[in-house]
Design a protein around this nucleic acid. Sequence first.
RNA 1: GCGAGAGUGGCGGAAUGGUAGACGCACGCGACUCAAAAUCGCGCGCCGCAAGGCAUGGGGGUUCGAGUCCCCCCUCUCGCACCA
Length: 868
Amino acid sequence: MASPAPEPHRYDFAAAEPRWQREWAARGCFHVADCPADGRRKYYVLEMFPYPSGRIHMGHVRNYTLGDVVARYQRARGAVVLHPMGWDAFGLPAENAARERGIHPARWTYDNIATMRGELQRMGLSLDWSREFATCDPSYYRHQQALFLDFLKAGLVERREAWVNWDPVDQTVLANEQVIDGRGWRSGAPVEKKLLSQWFLKITRFAPDLLAALETLERWPERVRVMQEKWIGRSEGARVRFPLTEAKADFAAIEVYTTRPDTLYGMSFLALAPEHPLAAALSAENPAIAAFIAECRRLGTSEAVIETAEKQGLDTGLRVRHPFLPDQTFPVWIANFVLMEYGTGAIFGCPAHDQRDLDFARKYRLPVRPVVLPPGAEAASFAIGDEAYDGPGAVFNSGFLDGLAADAAKRAAIEALARGGHGEGVVNWRLRDWGVSRQRYWGCPIPVIHCEACGVVPARDLPVLLPEDVSFDRPGNPLDHHPTWKHVPCPDCGRPARRETDTFDTFVDSSWYFARFCSPRAERPVDPEAARHWLPVDQYIGGIEHAILHLLYSRFFTRAMRATGHLALDEPFAGLFTQGMVTHASYRGADGRWLYPDEVETFADGSARHRDTGEAVSVGRVEAMSKSKRNTVDPGAIIARYGADTARWFILADNPPERDMEWTESGVQGAFRFIQRLYRLVAEIAAEGAAPGAAPADLSPPARSLRQATHRAIAAVTEALENFGFNIAVARIHELANALAETPAGPGADLRFARREAATILSRLVAPMMPHLAEELQTLLAADALLVAEQPWPEADPALLIRDQVTIAVQVLGKLRGTVSLPPGSPEAEVARLAMADPNVAKALAGRRIVKQIFVPDRIINFVIAAG
RNA sequence: GCGAGAGUGGCGGAAUGGUAGACGCACGCGACUCAAAAUCGCGCGCCGCAAGGCAUGGGGGUUCGAGUCCCCCCUCUCGCACCA
């Protein structure tokens, strides 16, 4: 399809949009100071910054449109709005490009940024581009290195050994999602578990506060808070030590974590995780144990296997004593379902009251001893079948705990454990410390130096810059291979030492960018005054996929930066909005290959053909846009063909922003038609000539009605925008446009005024959503010293929000039988009189006695009649 | 399995316990046109000629009145998933 040719009375978006973008930039409409001097209200709106992958996609368009509406609306409402943009620019794709195409990661990244910046600018976003930065800029990451060293000094960083997924071919660490069916996603080689020294940020130190403060995040989606709460995973229980009958390899006892100390008397076995140190020690002298552990490790890498894996175990032959039953001993097993990462990596098995333990006990014929009696059950006859009982009840078969309810029994058991030195009550957390070491080139260097004599020494002279002359023709970390880079003298003793060659997880980069935007050129990570002024972010907008990691890491960084004196802030994001995905129908040709929407012509009956070959095309599911399904639509092409305002308007109009939206060609065209219609409407009014400056005192009914519609629209659109109801705002704007189109020009000044007022208000109301069109409409109506982008938000006149007549529903026995029209505030008797005069109502009431009359002023009157 | 959310016309969706389906898309008819596009007008939940009846996943309940509140069930989506 060719671009629509400009015609008279046709909006030429292709000329107008760049013109207004230049005008906004020239006038610095969206520029704000780090520390604004005036006393106006501040508002910080931030969208999750993009990874510079090459081109923007529709998800970006949706995200940044939503944020821009908020920013422009808040600006019109009188706030000084901080609305910045930058680039989450470190990461693996840049290294892949280097390997595959021989382009340096920096070159690839900055080229992509240039392309994508242009695309975002063509969207007409009201961004303060003077604040732009990329996380791969040394001027950004030097401050990140400084923060890390401050965290190190404050004891918020730890170096320790940890298991990683190791790809032996690529010689690199893999993230969990890069391991597919136990193999590296690039090399296809079986992944190995390897123990490496890694840097950890001690997020667990803040676990209690990260959990407790979730409650203060009132403007966060409930489900995000729930997801974080589960991720942090607080539980209360007890640590219990079971002495071994015979000490083994430094172990005199095995420590277990349990949330059910009330069921200790129901113990039937103890189980270790295959990775438990004691298991490792045993495997050294017992080949059967070694083989079993190896088998668990082999199966352990694939999630699909874990889901279906049967419980398996091996009796080690060791036995432990029970703290409450000194004359009994229990077997120690190694079991594949016990997790080393949680608790102590060992459990006590109580099959009667834990399904997993029961499954295990049945398989290996271990005893099942009930110790909690469900209400109403008989102690003598109660037995466990195939289902463990984890409900409430009274403890029995349990010595001194008999008769107690669960909570009391837990307290009593913990007390007894403590008294006997066998254990204590503890709070346990699921949250792990955050491993931030990555064996990669394209990331922020971790600024430490390893010295044989002095140990870990913080680097001086930040930034520690990435070397530019690196080669990607060998597997592994190019920093490690670099001939000279890592060899440096120790800053403390001056002897030869070596740099840390690991770089930071890119989640580190995005954990504090929101703060850097307040003072992006400051000589320290954040300027305290700027941070105090702008933070927290008033509205953060992005995808739900970041519900846990990114948002939790940012919350951790806020606390760590507070602890090191960089911020005085509790929470980074006061408001969070998570948008839905952009979806599209998918198409497949006769041979099953995926087709791009551009290649397909669709028909009203739902069928589709190939545009060129005419072959039948099957229309598949509507699903998230993805390159592999080819159901993507390029924002650049849409903007070139229809303009940015069309894309923005369609995105906002289609459905509520938190839901997935379906991108359709007809929807885009509908948005395009509405823009043209508005333009024609306003152009026509502009041609009518000047209107009175103030509203004439006497308004004819159509003029009055139009003015009321105008002011109702102001009130309704305002309310909708306040609540992220953009689709509702669009509907109300359509209504006003319809009302205006239906009110023809008349000879009187009153109509001229009302029509011009409606047109002017329309231009203001659409401005946050279609900013270019708004400027163009205002230009049609009058030359104004101020751009729409500089105009205040319109205010509704309360007098015009009152209706002359209201329609009141008339019900008989709850069923609608008619309506009556009356001035608002009409008394009940008057409404009832008129209602009963309605023939339809009269018919329904004929011969019946009215028992009761329900009246809701201005809304409804309901006659309740006697039965029969 | 656990948790969260959602089921309303052909479609996206609207609706402080008070006229269900606003607004849009699609579709149909008409006007304009040589014609098409664009535009404008009318129609458009289902059944029915009509009167009217039936309709918000299904079933029950509260209420003068339920899409909305309560209980049970079904389906779908998204998280988490052997967390002791």
